[in-house]
Design a protein around this nucleic acid. Structure first.
Lengths: 229, 229, 229, 229
DNA sequence: GATGAATGAGGATTCATTCAT
DNA sequence: AATGAATGAATCCTCATTCAT
């Protein structure tokens, strides 16, 4: 149990009776993910839930509050996950396993990357306070960890050293590789030649792919006996 | 002159008198990039140009048409550039130089990646026919080229082999690394610790960074005598 | 005890436990007085009482009924008071004492004049049936009484005679002087230079003032030996 | 020409072609006067003008701005009139003539008193800055003038002296007598026994009445040879 | 080419009211 | 007697578009 997936499962799981509040958030993530904050209409959220638009106001003070609740419910767990990864001792959680877990999480919550992208495109105002949490929780620790790896032994064959100025770019690159795969699903599908990027096999392939990328780009943090799959 | 930068210069250059039509498109890219198609208001486009909203209809049939004109003007050159790159003989244009040129183009047209992302997030409906051009022009040739490289000699030290199923993911990864850097500027700035991602030095760093990434991830397409900068 | 002030004291007096119904009316007068019938929101009335808006309907059939109950509870006593005054034998109740009593009543129920004004401004539909009672109870008798006074001896120095056509205007004038002082408190405060019109001293001054006005405008109904305070 | 009545007469007069802007204000005064700011619906204003509600926003930025324009157009002249009266040399403009002029103005603009009352009832927030102008322009000078009158010769038969603390109450009283007559028209009509308070005769009667009241209440400011009409 | 004015559609929000619990 | 949830109607306002000038 990692404390991530239960967040959406007030009444445990799928088709069962969920609170109206949760059903509102379920519909809202989808709409916010697809259309962004402005584009998502209260009427459509209500419609998706099967209630009158006015009823939304019995559960949330306004659109903004729904949005915040969505972020809190669906984004906070991601940040928490990143925090766990960043704070984990290296031996316990090697980087590519980290990427695995993040990808798996997004595979189950494919709206989240879109949410992040919409907000970042709009200027990141709304997201910023949550993302700063993310930076505190993940980016800084990750940079420290990466630095350590680089310091240690840059001599290993096939491993890269990154200057302290490049390391943030490495973080950015992974962020974009991981989030972009989900956020830009339509584009990705086109490039994949029509294959659904969210299909289970596709996800597995992406995980394998990232594992290999990590091994090529991130300096020596892996047990040397790992064999490529 | 590569036929890319003059795209915005209907009347050649900067401060000179540009056609109203072009000024409309100038303002429109910015707004579409920031707020997306739905979020950008005709009134604001007109306001940015300094004319009345009704006057827009003397130049374009409607919002949709402005959007299409923006894509045609600012996105087509990118696709053309990608086509040039993809079709270039290897010796003439090694991959990391390709990344360089793309990054440079976006550094001068920072709205374009945002435009692409907005559209991809919204479902890619509007963009699709242009992006399909992009796929035809770039992705397919690129895949063929990459495949060649991989086939040739996977034995080189530090170089990766990618299965034909992984190659599209590699394309996706580069797409995300390159576009994401520009499209998610606010997020990137946060990770960079406040540094402006569009500042000239930042761009240079990103180019260097990508060059090294290319060298690590893309199989043997480089003159072996290249020395890292 | 004149049977006026106990109207608000369903359970006798001030800080004690009052029935929910009465507490609703307490809050309602204030809101109706400040915002008028349309402007006062059921939710706010409920909020003021500390209950849910739906609970109001356990005590009243609707907003209209709350309004009517408010008028009945807080306006009826005024009408009754006016009736007493109008029907009182002259010797028992001289005019300026009458004004005194009315002012005192409003000083304790400062919402009532506002209520009357709101309603009169809105067209007096709601109020009309209550006000017709008021006319029957007060205006007609008062006019008769004034007429008598005028008939009697218009010759007195400093006293005015009013034609039967002017007498209603005199009633209107007093109505406006008395009610307006309370209803337009904010305006009055401005004119008073910031002094609170509801402060005890202000009330006393207004009473004195009205007494003198009565003496100047209303024909000989006073014991001639009255000395100005 | 006193600069007052032409304010509403952009295109001179009654049924002629007036600008949409003015027609909006015409309807708006009526609705604001009857229902207050909150109660007046944009849709109704538009309906009264015969245009779509959205069209209002081509002429005013919002409801608030329509309200302000109404005040500016219909209230400012009143304040100006009061200023003229207050600043006029006594010989030129005796008090009861002043009351005459004010009454005449309101007889032609019967909505204004209602506007003032609505605003004063609501707390005077919106009106305040205009009313403070009124206080500066009229109340203060009036008080000074009244004080002079009182100082001069309180000895005249039938004239009253007012202490400086009572004078503001006198101003308040006249304000209420004059405004109240128009603002509370429905109530007044009831008291008048059904006569329309705005009928020409009624207005004349009210002017006569006020003249006599002024003579009784306001200390020696009149040419002694004035004969009651 | 440009504009002021008009408009129907829609968007968020408020409100009085109802009803099952 | 109280409440949370639901709702239709109405609120102010925005938007893309049209049209006469």
């Amino acid at each position: 149990m990692d404390g991530l997936h239960d967040s959406t499962a007030g009444a445990s799981g799928r088709g069962e009776r969920r609170s109206t509040r949760d059903r509102i958030l379920d519909v809202a993530v989808e709409l916010f993910a697809e259309k962004g904050f402005v584009g998502a209409a209260m009427r459509d959220i209500a419609g998706g839930v099967g209630i009158n638009a006015a009823s939304l106001y019995n559960h949330f003070a306004g659109k903004e509050q729904i949005y915040e609740a969505v972020l809190e419910r669906d984004l906070a767990p991601v940040i928490e996950l990143l925090g766990q990864i960043a704070s984990a001792p290296e031996t316990d959680l090697s980087d590519y396993e980290a990427a695995d877990r993040v990808v798996e999480h997004f595979a189950e919550h494919p709206h989240v990357p879109k949410l992040i992208y919409h907000d970042a495109l709009a200027g990141g105002e709304q997201l910023s306070h949550l993302l700063e949490r993310s930076v505190d929780a993940f980016v800084a620790p990750a940079l420290r960890a990466l630095e350590k790896g680089t310091d240690a032994d840059g001599a290993d064959v096939g491993e890269v050293e990154w200057s302290s100025e490049e390391l943030p770019l490495l973080v950015v690159a992974f962020q974009n590789m991981i989030l972009g795969y989900f956020a830009l699903a339509p584009l990705v599908r086109t490039i994949l030649g029509g294959t659904d990027p969210l299909a289970e096999e596709s996800i597995e392939r992406q995980k394998d792919f990232l594992r290999r990328v990590v091994r090529r780009l991130v300096p020596g943090r892996f047990p040397t006996n790992v064999v490529e799959s």
